[in-house]
Design a protein around this nucleic acid. Structure first.
Length: 813
RNA sequence: GCGGAUGUGGUGGAAUUGGUAGACACGCCAGACUUAGGAUCUGGUGCCUAACGGUGUGGAGGUUCGAGUCCUCUCAUCCGCACCA
């Protein structure tokens, strides 16, 4: 019988389905593993990146199941989002219909891969039941002051009539219609992630060694904690008067308080209230006011590309320590969103300040010794700094903060680059933000018993405006508090909100899904996810948001977990011809076609064999043939097996080839635990199995064949489950899948040992000696074998590395 | 600019953590079998050399009996952040 993947795979997929083979046990006392591959967006078709993602996760899930763990290995659908609305616009399909039919199709595709997912825990994030609980969390966050509504400047695309996330702005233009993005002030909902910034930062230490270091670093940089001094600049009397007495001071933040005596000007963002006041009240020359407005209309991205530009505001502040008058400017490099939108400028010791000062002929005052030229940003002693002169600048930072605090002039502060998470989207296909605007009561959350606030089905999606806003009746409702006429919020939640807590939803027993979003006992048992697998592209957004949500939900009492993902594996991309597979490049390989031609086992084997999971994987059609060939050979050689169980083998009766075969088999076995539990270098385990099969093929002892197959099928089952199960069932009644197979040390005991003989570090020859030969005996044998290279040489050093080699360092006599 | 990675045959990649570099696989070459083969099997295959031998892990130094692995410098590529005061 030749290998027929179609038949075998269909058979076992049906059987697994019938047996509900992959449902976790409800018992919460067993040892557990929660293996999670990032859930897919139901775009319509599976791509190779998915296959890789799920092949890795499935291998781990199957491995642990065989080790008697209670394994949770779920799948679901990240189902809200833009593409569904685009499909509606382009093809007139309703987002809901489009999404659920895609899910049905992709579920089938995943099915043909033989992945061991729990079927009972599958859900889509657009299911109203999921929305219901999410809305409850959102309301609870509001009640805790973690969610707030605020009007700020956002990226706005006039032609698409929507707010764009920062990531959706490319070179200052809308990613979809290429129209220039405008900055617009509008209200939106924000989650106060900054409140958790410190914990998010500190807990990264727990993940050290378990998450890829680059992801940890990226998160650390993204949070961007910096410590320094915040202090007020008081305006001069004249300036106060010019500002009609509306302002008398403003705050600045610096990480370089040691340079405070070098301040020669101060700069405000164009959006700073003082700048705005001056512009709006015609207190500047109209030409200057226009230029400032122009800068304010540019996005941060766009501004970053411009040269330094700024204008004197005609006002001054008083230096808090020297009492000098300091001119105030507005500048395009001062960010409104960081540090209060105002800076003290020290051109001598800051590159930006220097560039600006040079351009506008502002004074430059050196206050730190060191370096040949200015600006000098290194360390050194302070000069011209009053009582702090001669102090080393690192000490001066602390001393000056202390002094400012004592004098009540400022305080040590922490600042973050991290911005609060804007979760409002002016889109239809998302979870409605469950609030109501009431003229009497203001912003009122919907009552819990009315959740979910569901999306209306009868919407018109044109790509213009917010369909919920345009819907004739949906937004009109009664105030949950006073009962008067009110208006529903028409913004929906960012889809990253859904993916921030789905790992808790899977963990919750589906029997409880109706009544609770997260069951505490279930969550505390299953979480954290023991192994999370996904693309590096989520290094910040999803992984940071999910960590944040975990901590928030913990503080809301839903569970006791601090970190959602204990270990993280970031898989590399699947490439073809050196580029990422994409439809537009026409370099895709269709998983369906691959499975159809070779079967799922070959697809899975190839994808795990071609590269370690962390690396990019270059697609190679003929290497797929190689994977197929290996399975065929394995299938073919199963005929060599005679026993039904693991045989007892008398090592001493075996031929040299049979002994070697056993060594290869047991080497693979030895390697497997490390691969499945730590390194995930499936490529090396597969290579070890190939070596074992090659070695078995060079001998003909049937017991050795039986033992080899028994072990290899166990090792390979997580990777090529269909054929491994088929053969194991036929040969061993799957007894080889029960529990761990012990390594037999006697297999590795050798009758003689090969030593490499090196002369001065160069390999020259080999010797074969008895395993219990003394060093002297080994050296004597080595000298004899290496005689030809030792003539006219004097041995200066002799090294024997047990079981490996002899090195004789020589020099000419 | 800052941060993080990566660099090994024609290709994908191994190397027990300082001990025989190139396992395993693809490709290629030769042969066998076959009506045929894009099937299967056998053998070969880093580079230079007719050979002895030499040489070889991006490059240059260094430590060591011994370096792909450790140290210093350097080059290249990729990724992330990007005026964060």
């Amino acid at each position: 019988m030749s290998y027929n993947p179609k038949e075998i795979e269909a058979k076992w997929q049906q059987q697994w389905e019938a047996e509900q083979a992959f449902e976790p046990s409800d018992s919460l006392s067993q040892k557990k593993k929660y293996i999670l591959s990032m859930f897919p967006f139901p775009s319509g078709r599976l791509h190779m990146g998915h296959v890789r993602n799920y092949a890795i996760g499935d291998a781990l899930a199957r491995y642990y199941r065989k080790q008697d763990y209670n394994v949770l290995h779920p799948i679901g659908w990240d189902a809200f989002g833009m593409p569904a609305e685009n499909a509606a616009i382009k093809h007139g399909r309703h987002p809901k219909e489009w999404t659920y039919s895609n899910i049905d199709y992709m579920r089938k595709e995943l099915g043909t891969l033989g992945l061991s997912f729990s079927k009972t825990r599958e859900f889509a994030t657009c299911d109203p039941l999921y929305t219901k609980h999410e809305q409850k969390f959102i309301i609870e966050m509001f009640q805790k002051g973690l969610l707030y509504r605020e009007s700020t400047t956002v990226n706005w695309c006039e032609s698409c009539h929507t707010v764009l996330a920062n990531e959706q702005v490319e070179e200052g233009c809308c990613w979809r219609c290429d129209n220039p993005v405008e900055l617009k002030e509008m209200p939106g909902y924000y989650l106060d992630i900054i409140r958790y910034a410190d914990e998010l930062l500190e807990d990264l230490a727990q993940l050290e060694g378990k998450w890829p270091s680059q992801v940890i670093t990226m998160q650390r940089n993204w949070i961007g904690k910096s410590q320094g001094l915040a202090f007020d600049f008081e305006l001069t009397e004249e300036s106060k008067a010019k500002l009609d007495g509306k302002f008398d001071r403003y705050e600045v933040f610096t990480t370089r308080p040691d340079t405070i005596y070098g301040v020669t000007y101060s700069a405000l963002a164009p959006e700073h209230p003082i700048t705005k006041y001056l512009v709006e009240h015609n207190l500047l020359e109209s030409e200057v006011a226009e230029k400032i407005k122009a800068i304010a209309n540019m996005s941060e991205v766009e501004r970053a590309k411009q040269d330094k530009e700024g204008y004197s505001l005609g006002i001054s502040v008083i230096h808090p320590l020297t009492g000098e008058q300091i001119p105030v400017w507005t500048a395009n490099f001062v960010l409104a969103s960081y540090g209060g939108g105002a800076v003290m400028a020290v051109p001598a010791h800051d590159e930006r300040d220097y560039e600006f000062a040079t351009k506008y002929n502002l004074p430059i005052k050196r206050v730190i010794e060191g370096g040949e030229e200015l600006p000098y940003t290194g360390s050194g002693r302070l000069i011209e700094s009053d009582r702090f002169s001669c102090v080393e600048n690192e000490e001066a930072k602390i001393a000056i903060i202390n002094y400012m605090e004592e004098e009540g002039k400022g305080k040590g502060t922490t600042n973050y680059k991290l911005r609060n998470w804007g979760v409002s989207r002016q889109r239809y296909w998302g979870a409605p933000i469950p609030f109501v605007h009431c003229d009497e009561c203001g912003l009122v959350p919907e009552k819990f018993e009315n959740l979910p606030v569901a999306l209306p089905d009868d919407v018109e999606i044109t790509g213009e405006g917010n369909p919920l806003e345009n819907h004739p009746t949906w937004k009109h409702c009664k105030c949950p508090k006073c009962g008067k006429d009110a208006v529903r919020e028409t913004d929906t939640l960012d889809t990253f909100v859904q993916s921030s807590w789905y790992q808790f939803r899977y963990a919750t027993n589906p029997k409880k899904w109706e009544e609770v979003g997260i069951d505490k006992a279930d969550a505390d048992y299953w979480l954290g996810v023991d192994q999370y697998i996904g693309g590096i592209e989520h290094a910040i957004l999803h992984l940071l948001y999910a960590r944040f949500f975990t901590k928030v939900l913990r503080d809301l009492g839903y569970h006791d977990i601090d970190e959602p993902f204990q270990r993280l594996l970031t898989q590399g991309m699947v490439l073809k011809d050196g580029a990422k597979m994409s439809k537009s490049k026409g370099n895709t390989v269709d998983p369906d076609a691959l499975v159809d031609k070779y079967g799922a086992d070959t697809a899975r084997l190839f994808i795990l064999f071609a590269a370690p999971p962390q690396k990019e994987l270059e697609w190679n059609d003929s290497a797929v043939d190689g994977a197929f060939r290996f399975i065929k050979k394995l299938y073919d050689r199963s005929g060599k097996v005679t026993g039904k169980t693991l045989p007892e083998i008398d090592q001493s009766s075996l031929s040299k080839e049979s002994k070697l075969a056993r060594v290869k088999v047991y080497e693979a076995l030895q390697k497997s635990a490390d691969v499945y539990e730590h390194t995930f270098a499936f490529n090396t385990l597969i290579a070890a199995c190939m070596e074992a099969l090659n070695a078995l093929d060079k001998q003909d002892n049937t017991d050795v064949w039986t033992e080899g197959m028994y072990i290899m099928l166990n090792l390979l089952e997580p990777i090529i489950p269909h054929v491994a199960t088929e053969l194991s069932e036929k040969l061993f009644g799957r007894e080889n899948f029960n529990g761990k197979i012990e390594v037999k040390d006697e297999v590795f005991v050798q009758e003689s040992v090969m030593y490499v003989v090196m002369i001065s570090g160069k390999k020259r020859t080999e010797i074969e000696v008895s395993p219990d030969a003394s060093n002297d005996e080994i050296l004597a044998a080595a000298k004899e074998a290496g005689e030809k290279w030792l003539q006219n040489m004097q041995i200066v050093k002799e090294i024997v590395v047990p079981n490996k080699l002899v090195n004789l360092a020589v020099k000419p006599v």
